[in-house]
Amino acid sequence: MKIKVLGCSGGIGGDQYTTALLVDDDILIDAGTGVNRLSMEALTRIDHVFITHSHMDHITSIPLMVDTVARMRDKPLVLHATEATLGILRGHIFNWEIWPDFSRIPTATAPYMRYETIAIGKPVQLGQRRITALPANHAVPAVGYQLDSGTASLVFTGDTTTNDPFWEIVNGIGNLRYLIIETAFSNKEREIAVLSKHLCPSMLQEELTKLKLPVEMYITHLKPGEDALIMREIDACIGNYQPHRLMNDQVFEF
């Protein structure tokens, strides 16, 4: 598997783009503003979008992407998410008021887009690639993902706060190589992190005491303007893990 980071920021502006990971050339993990960096040709090759949750910074490009490339494709774009998240998309995005219902355009039997329900712990097999939803703990129904090439795995937490069930599963992944974990707020905003169900460095430190496997770790979803401070606080409290800041255009191959 080859994963390219299109966006990994907690906001926008300048070179900041919200969450989108391109897997090979046909899968997206989330579809934030980072998707805007893809060419038209690249957009037509996207067959699957695996959605962590329904917040705008993770889904904002989906409606425009479907509308832009649907007529250039010979099969529907598949949105993979839990039933709870798909229900939010149906009710609040693809509802004819915010955006047309492309699961019924041009016809209900041959749509430009279709929904596929996923469940935590049940892998989706796409060729040799296995993508499995993992539990997340966020302000809306949410998941993370394990991406398994067969040789190694990358785990992406999605947006989450403290989450014991997640670590129980992660500690059982024998071929785990990479962990991408969010830390959205600095320690001075711990109360906001708790309220919005995100992490700050001190909370991340507490969570990592539950990790039992060696792993190469990357930090994502930092708030613009606070990003340097957050990374300094992370380095100060969990430097033994040598976490790296996730960057646009970073590539993982495994």
Rank of each mutant, 00 (worst) to 15 (best):
T132H: 00
I118R: 01
T117V: 15
L134M: 14
E116R: 10
P106H: 08
T162I: 14
S103A: 15
M113F: 07
T161C: 15
E83H: 07
W96Y: 12
T82Q: 10
E83L: 10
N137S: 13
S186F: 00
P76C: 09
V155C: 11
Q146N: 13
T107P: 04
L89G: 06
T160Y: 04
T109F: 00
D148S: 05
T109Q: 05
V155Q: 05
I93M: 13
I118L: 12
G158K: 03
W96L: 07
N137E: 14
I181F: 04
A152Q: 13
L79V: 11
L134K: 02
E182L: 01
A136T: 07
T183N: 14
A133W: 01
I131R: 02
I180Q: 10
A152P: 01
S186M: 01
T161Q: 13
I169C: 08
I131F: 04
P135Q: 11
N175G: 09
Y145F: 15
L147H: 08
L89V: 06
S186R: 06
I180R: 04
Q146P: 03
G144K: 03
R129W: 09
A119C: 09
V155T: 08
M113Y: 03
F166A: 05
F185C: 11
A136Q: 05
A84W: 00
H80Q: 05
Q146H: 04
I98N: 14
L176Q: 01
L89M: 15
T160I: 12
P111I: 11
S186V: 04
N95W: 02
F156M: 14
P76S: 09
G150K: 06
Y178V: 14
P141Y: 06
R190I: 13
R190N: 11
R190G: 08
Q128S: 15
L154R: 00
A108G: 00
S149M: 06
R129L: 15
P76E: 11
V143K: 00
E97H: 02
N171H: 04
V140K: 03
N95S: 08
E116S: 13
R90P: 03
V170C: 10
L77F: 09
L154N: 01
E182M: 09
G174A: 14
P165D: 11
G91H: 06
G144F: 01
D159N: 09
E168A: 13
N163F: 06
P165N: 08
S103F: 01
I118N: 02
K122V: 15
E182G: 14
Y145T: 07
G158Q: 06
N163I: 09
V170G: 05
A110Q: 14
P111C: 10
V143R: 01
L147F: 12
V78S: 05
A81R: 01
R129K: 15
D148G: 04
L77G: 11
V140I: 14
I180W: 01
R90L: 11
